[in-house]
Design a binder for these strands. Structure first.
Lengths: 286, 286
DNA sequence: CGATGCATTGATATGTTTCAATAACGGTGG
DNA sequence: CCACCGTTATTGAAACATATCAATGCATCG
């Protein structure tokens, strides 16, 4: 855990967003989707209560994954999907010669392993970044159940489609955005996910290193650091190591959606902008 | 069509790879998957002949899309998947403020429209780059059929998963490769697809502009052009406008898989490499 | 035959990486 | 407890890759 436990947390939103979603007293007694706090955002979402009950008979196994351990390796035989219950994962896309990249970060409610259906083997590697727990969803069983419950089939399709759409947006990010846009989009994306899990969405702790952010965004860690610092100087955010507060969402969104230099006497290009920002913090030096 | 019809074509591999896969005399008489030349690479792949027969009752409608027309727009209501029969498509990913990018090129046997399942609306736009024809696969019907024929359900999952995996590899391309790698990977990818459709895979006509290649690869058209020229000068390929011949697959693969400057007195960086290559073509100038 | 779209190539500007130095932090073991 | 270590983050200067701007050529099409 990267959360400083000794700090006061008045807004109650800097804690691990996973923690507390499922009341402790339920976590052992009732291992059913119907009583899982995540059911609205996880696989059972949209199903009738009785359908959720049946699903729960399928999804009865849990698996703990310690920080740093892998959930599945590239090439492992595909047998199950996994639903993240608690914790935090990264999925790693591996290409031929020592090329690899983080393809996504995953938290509560996310379904992992869709890439295994194509060839019967997982084509990526998923690693826990904190001590985590997943629900195991055996594919054979799920497949059978989807036949008996058409809504489940639809839901499965919806989730896979959502993954396709998510990856599309990452392609857009990687292929046609500049570093500052990427970083802004990233911050807004993280915030949005926390918000949907019921947390503030303007104040949170990053659970990954600069290098991991860079890997995800197609940037070097120094570039990420520089742009985060720049946003801080500009007053768009406040950042100290991993603690982030989004201070000007509109401005951030403007950066994310391109359109630089809306200001008047601001520099015309991004390199000078980084400089400009830095200097205007120390007017006595000019 | 971009194919010069008046040219001799001794290798029989520069023609439109779609043409001729389905014998002309079948194309009107038998509109069934079971007799479609694409059945092995399309949706019915892996199904029993009688299952294919049933699938054919579902997939009985065709749709022609003229060059430049859209198959579906972003935001259109999702009702069907489409299987490319003949022709050539590009899918366009659109982001907020005038940000858009080509997410993929699609030819015979590809299934389009998976992104519509997530929210009931297509989240991309697909446009025909040549006069094309698709099979219309109504989703409701497909969903019902998948319930009656489990293998069809599996096949559907497989295809969606394949799309997820494909997009992952594009993410890798966009996020962690340099321009020359990207271009090499692109050429090998195109070649591979032609090869799988039964064509030579070393000699083909590009069906898209430099700008479209660039959009797909996250590069500007000039950069694409420069690296194609460089590959030509190096003898890895021969390219004239849209006509490509891959001459040294191993070398191309080496570029695609990183590891530059395996040679001895070759320049150490890529800028100089581009220069070097150009100069060594005119030794009299040195 | 001019107009238009596409491709190539050069010169320069710009954004990002690379290399390097330093600082802050957390954990570990004397 | 504190000195020490490895990891993570920040920041600067220089090198590099790609984008941008611009000019030209070459086809195709009406």
């Amino acid at each position: 855990m990267n959360v400083p436990v000794n700090k006061r947390d008045p807004d109650n939103n800097k804690r691990d967003p996973n923690k507390g979603i499922v009341p402790e007293f339920l976590s052992h007694a009732a291992q059913h989707c119907a009583s899982c706090g995540l059911r609205e955002i996880c696989l059972p979402s949209g199903l009738m209560p009785d359908e959720q009950e049946v699903l729960a008979t399928l999804v009865d196994k849990r698996r703990r994954v310690a920080r740093g351990d892998v959930l599945f390796h590239l090439g492992d035989e595909f047998r199950s999907l996994y639903a993240v219950r608690t914790g935090f994962f990264k999925s790693i896309v591996v290409g031929g010669d020592e090329q690899s990249q983080i393809g996504g970060f995953h938290l509560s409610g996310d379904i992992l392993g869709f890439d295994g259906m194509a060839e019967g083997r997982y084509e990526s590697e998923v690693r826990a970044m904190e001590d985590s727990e997943v629900c195991v969803i055996p594919y054979d069983g799920l497949s059978d159940l989807a036949i008996r419950f058409p809504p489940l089939q639809r839901q499965l399709h919806r989730l896979m489609s959502r993954e396709i759409v998510r990856e599309r947006s990452v392609m857009l990010l990687l292929g046609s955005m500049q570093a500052d846009q990427k970083v802004a989009v990233f911050l807004l994306g993280v915030a949005e996910r926390y918000r949907r899990l019921g947390y503030s969405g303007t104040s949170f702790i990053l659970r990954m290193t600069r290098e991991e952010i860079g890997s995800y965004l197609g940037l070097k860690l120094e570039t990420v650091s520089r742009h985060l610092s720049a946003f801080d100087q500009q007053g768009l955010i406040s950042i100290d190591k991993r603690e982030v507060i989004l201070k000007d969402l509109n401005a951030l969104q403007r950066v994310a959606g391109s359109a630089i230099g809306a200001g008047s006497d601001a520099p015309a290009n991004r390199t000078e902008w980084l400089e400009f920002v830095k200097c205007s913090d120390h007017p006595e030096l000019n």
